[in-house]
Amino acid sequence: MHTGLGGYLVLGGVTVAALLLFAAAMVARRLLAPRAPGLTKQSTYESGVDPVGGGWAQTHVRYLAYAFLYVVFAVDAAYLFPWALVLRDQRVGVASLVEMGIFISVILVGLLHFARRRALSWDDDD
């Protein structure tokens, strides 16, 4: 008599085991970790810079552009490497090549847009 719930029972058991392991790790950390509270440990620490002044600081939009470019090319690489491995298979066909060509074209249009707007130069002659 197979009810079909066996998979759910396994999933539930693994979930309960994961939660118990997580709780055990948190309890062990709480019991074993050294505690030495003090003024120095409770102060704000950010990249080795002492917190002086207000909390507001403006950042140049150029950093956002570089972060955006990094994300675009990281996603591009995440798609290109698996695709290049699958491309050897004859069943993939020309459609996959055309799709990847369109994908790379869109990425290149964005890069050309950044270059045309001179967003990739570090000069402050904007």
Rank of each mutant, 00 (worst) to 15 (best):
M1T: 15
T3I: 07
T3D: 00
G4K: 08
L5C: 03
L5Y: 11
Y8C: 06
G13S: 08
G13I: 08
A17R: 04
L19W: 04
L20Y: 00
L20D: 01
A23W: 06
A24F: 01
M26D: 01
V27F: 04
A28H: 05
R29H: 02
R29E: 09
L31V: 02
A33T: 10
P34V: 04
P34I: 05
A36I: 01
A36D: 08
G38W: 15
G38Y: 13
K41L: 05
S43M: 11
T44L: 15
Y45S: 05
Y45D: 02
S47R: 09
G48P: 04
V49L: 14
V49K: 14
D50L: 11
D50E: 11
G55C: 05
A57N: 06
A57Q: 10
H60L: 06
H60Y: 04
V61D: 13
V61R: 11
R62Y: 12
Y63Q: 04
L64N: 05
L64C: 03
L64M: 08
A67M: 09
V71S: 12
F73I: 07
F73S: 07
D76G: 08
D76Q: 10
A77E: 03
A78M: 12
A78D: 01
L80W: 13
F81E: 05
W83Y: 14
D89Q: 08
Q90R: 09
R91M: 05
R91C: 03
R91D: 07
R91I: 06
V92D: 00
V92H: 00
A95S: 07
E99V: 07
E99R: 10
M100P: 02
G101K: 03
G101S: 13
G101M: 10
G101D: 04
F103E: 01
F103M: 10
F103G: 04
I104G: 10
I104W: 08
S105C: 07
V106L: 11
V106R: 02
V109F: 11
G110S: 05
L112G: 06
H113L: 12
F114K: 06
A115V: 14
R118E: 12
R118W: 13
R118Q: 12
D123Y: 14
D125P: 01
D126K: 10
